[in-house]
Design a protein around this nucleic acid. Structure first.
Lengths: 289, 289
DNA sequence: GGAACCTGTATGATCCATAATACAGCTTCG
DNA sequence: CGAAGCTGTATTATGGATCATACAGGTTCC
């Protein structure tokens, strides 16, 4: 009766360094402490430190130079996709990037209770279940599982689903899609999503669950999407509205600011040369044990 | 030469079952396949299956009955908090739940480059850095790291920060907060957040990064928030707008629909009694430790 | 009651992540 | 150049996770 399943030490160190890099504590271009130093600092062997660095290198967060050191990789090779709230990728096309879809699974099944209930199905009613993967420039970034009532799914073919957006097929069938509710959350990659997204099991994933209703309130689509956080994230602009007693944020409507996003990415990329490591402020929290 | 850090087998099976339970594939009250069956299915030993089930049981997702079986726990003990886009928890108060804040760290430091740049600071300018944990009914659910320019941070005290919302303090100082941009993503828990949120290292977390600007475009707050996905998620209602060539989703404004959320929670809670498997199972779970 | 399940528990063998150490080859810098 | 770093690689040893097996005790159902 003791420790439960503790993550591997290598993984723990990997996460620690990863957090410091992402938080900007270790700026791009900076040299990491040497492997012996890291090993001593975390009270592990150098082999374990190496395995942690292997993970960071595989993710492109770090670059190793034999004889010289290990450096935080500047100018992230893969720029993440940015989607606005409504999950529109319109500005992707502006950037000249191409998306593709691969259909992994297609069939008619009895739905899990939770989905049947969220779509408002009658007991025994079947659904069309499909699993797709979306790719950006050939790299997978999202894993989509959709459930559609059978009567609606029958209005299009498997080939059509593989070629066109599901929502377009639904609307083509004459169904009006007017309302939707969605929830954003996080989870860990299970075996299938991990394989499809080219990740290891246990990697973090961003999830989006959306239920689309027609004007009568009938559920027409249940979407469960998993996104690779390094290749996809949700962005939004907010404005402060309301009068004094009740000020709060509200999403700013209108086209997403592709220009601003691009600017932020660029400036982030080339700002590290005149810097001379000003005493590294946040070390205070580290030592705890 | 194979390596890569593969998660422990027990953890992998834990993740798999957990996903199936959360996805509703294994409905509440359902009996899981027996330990020998699971062991055979995943090609591991029964001991390993047991360790995975231990984790599920510790999280309250599953309940074991010696001699009988292992069952999916119905009526999740902790209901997740639901926030709308603007991250307002107003309906929490309606539900009679109380939130609290614990200040973990407070001080003035030299900011990481990424944060200095996103706030538009001059080189050498220092920032106030604070780390707080928010609790709901005594349980931690979010881990907030904020960076505020020094000139602004000096307008309030450490004690005030521990007691009042940061945005309120900022506006009290006379600064107008008008615009903000935010990004939602997912990550894994590093050591400090894991400890503060009562999680294991490597647990999935929902992240929110928000940068608040005043009307002149000057950055006044950089917020990095980590949320426990089992206790917090973002919800939003969408409406379909635009004319035919340019249909897309847009967030539905207006007050958050606490009523609808409550309804959804409730129906989810009691939809498994008139179910069509009166043979076994419903009676099985009655007693609760 | 009794057969057929189930979970709980114990045992010893095996495999793999980690530790400890040593050395090669490279880069940086005085 | 040469010392002092660094990464890359190999070695053996150890401990924990996992395996295979067996048995105890409870539940379900005939």
């Amino acid at each position: 009766m003791k420790s439960s399943v503790e993550p591997l030490k290598a993984r723990r160190i990997y996460l620690l360094l990863r957090d410091r890099i992402i938080a900007g504590d270790l700026p791009p271009g900076e040299r990491l402490p040497g492997e012996p130093a890291l090993a001593a600092e975390h009270a592990v062997s150098r082999v374990t430190v190496r395995r942690a660095l292997d993970l960071l290198e595989k993710e492109g967060l770090v670059q190793r130079k034999p004889g010289s050191g290990t450096f935080v990789h500047d100018s992230r090779a893969v720029r993440p996709i940015v989607a606005d709230l409504s999950n529109v990728l319109s500005h992707l096309i502006d950037m000249g990037r191409s998306t593709d879809v691969k259909l992994l699974s297609f069939g008619y099944v009895a739905p899990p209770e939770a989905i049947a209930e969220s779509l408002g199905l009658k007991p025994g009613e079947r659904v069309q279940r499909s699993v797709r993967v979306r790719l950006i420039d050939g790299e997978p970034f999202s894993y989509l599982t959709t459930h559609v009532p059978e009567w609606l799914g029958l209005t299009y073919s498997e080939a059509e689903l593989a070629a066109r957006p599901l929502l377009e097929l639904i609307e083509r069938s004459g169904v009006k899609t007017e309302r939707a509710t969605q929830a954003i959350n996080a989870t860990l990659a299970g075996p299938e999503p991990a394989a499809a997204l080219d990740l290891e099991i246990g990697s973090p994933l961003l999830t989006l669950t959306r239920i689309v209703h027609d004007p009568s309130g009938r559920g027409v689509e249940h979407l469960h999407a998993l996104y690779r956080p390094d290749r996809y994230s949700f962005h939004m602009d907010l404005v402060r509205i309301g009068d004094d007693g009740e000020r709060r944020w509200s999403p700013a409507l209108g086209r997403p600011r592709a220009s601003e996003i691009a600017k932020a990415e660029k400036t982030k990329a080339d700002k590290n040369k005149a810097g001379e490591k000003p005493t590294r402020g946040s070390r205070a929290i580290k030592q705890r044990s």
